Simulated scan of single mutants.
Amino acid sequence: MTISPVTDLPPLDNRRVHTSTEDVLVDRVVPGEILVIAFGFVSWETRPNFDFYGRLKKLEQTSGRHINKVLVRDSGNAWYHRNIEGLGAHPDQTAASLRALIAAIAPAKVITIGQSMGAYAAVMYGLLLKADSVIAFGPLSFLDAAQALLYHERRWLAVMRDLARDPPASGYYDLALLPRGNTALHILFGTRPDSANATESVNLDAMHAHRLAALGNCTLYPYPYSGHAVVQHLIDTKRINALLARLIAGVEIEEQGMEVSPEWLGWVAENLRLGGDPHELVAILQQHGFSYDSSAAAVARGGGQT
């Protein structure tokens, strides 16, 4: 990537983001504004998409300020350890290119973000780049097959074994060993098992989250009614925009939430009849994405049932 004319780049649009064949895109630059580096998630059937572009554009409208955006994807689905066209052939090379890009943009602060495979990259590069903060949805904490088997973590063993057979020139296979510095980690994860027949008591993402939290300067956001796809859960429950506004721009906006449905009203009534604690019922409704006001109202009127 050519760094020198970065401040002259035109703004991105949906068409460019969705049709580009590149691995990295840079939006119009405004020096002194926040920079978000967004890493795309895995896709086995098609080329991975760029991620979070639409959400960041919406956040610009909400906050009234420009957000510098660098969109990155790993077309080889190698957890950002192999070639990222335009940036580098391995993590150290890619990190060096991103450092040069950050220097050219001259942002007020740097935030990395991603989900799943992109979350691993957000943590890895966030720490390597000494970013101000990392927002990671459901990240792995390691890419080591032997360690994965100890934890019954078999979801992406093939990727781990491929990297071990043919390692890149540099690699980071246990994120918990990376120097933390002053980077603030925000780890968001589901705790509900993804499979109905799962033998694990919680989603394995919870284990990875706690490994990353062990070194400090980390905030955990567990979602008990989500599996691995925690971003989709937050979208479905209409909480994603308020969350990103707070973590990226420091802006507090009201969560959209959902109105309590008749089915849930019946659930509230039944639990109250059985002696359920009203405060706990409100909290459970909120975890499912219902607004606080509608949750409290449903519980206050006994679920609307007689």
Rank of each mutant, 00 (worst) to 15 (best):
T7S: 08
P11I: 00
L12T: 03
D13C: 03
S20Q: 01
D27T: 05
V29Y: 06
P31D: 13
I34M: 02
F39E: 00
F41L: 05
R47S: 15
R47D: 14
Y53M: 08
Y53P: 08
G54Y: 07
R55G: 01
K57M: 03
D74N: 07
A78W: 03
A78K: 07
W79P: 02
N83R: 14
I84S: 00
G86C: 10
L87P: 00
G88H: 04
G88S: 08
G88R: 02
D92V: 13
A100N: 14
L101R: 06
I102M: 07
A103Y: 00
A106N: 15
I111K: 04
S116E: 07
S116F: 06
Y125K: 02
L129H: 01
A136H: 12
G138N: 10
L140E: 10
L143N: 09
H152V: 08
E153Y: 12
E153V: 04
R154D: 14
R154E: 13
M160P: 04
M160H: 07
R165C: 00
Y172R: 03
R180S: 09
N182M: 07
L188Y: 03
R192Y: 04
R192S: 09
N197Y: 10
N197I: 15
A198Y: 05
S201W: 05
S201P: 01
V202S: 12
V202Y: 11
M207F: 14
C218A: 15
Y221M: 07
P224C: 11
P224I: 13
Y225M: 12
S226L: 09
G227D: 11
D236H: 14
R239D: 14
L244M: 11
A249L: 13
V251Q: 15
E252V: 09
E255D: 14
G257I: 04
A269C: 06
E270H: 12
N271W: 06
L272T: 08
L274I: 02
L274W: 09
G276A: 12
G276T: 06
G276Y: 11
V282D: 01
L285H: 07
G289Y: 09
Y292M: 08
A297V: 03
A298Q: 05
V299F: 02
R301V: 11
T306R: 07
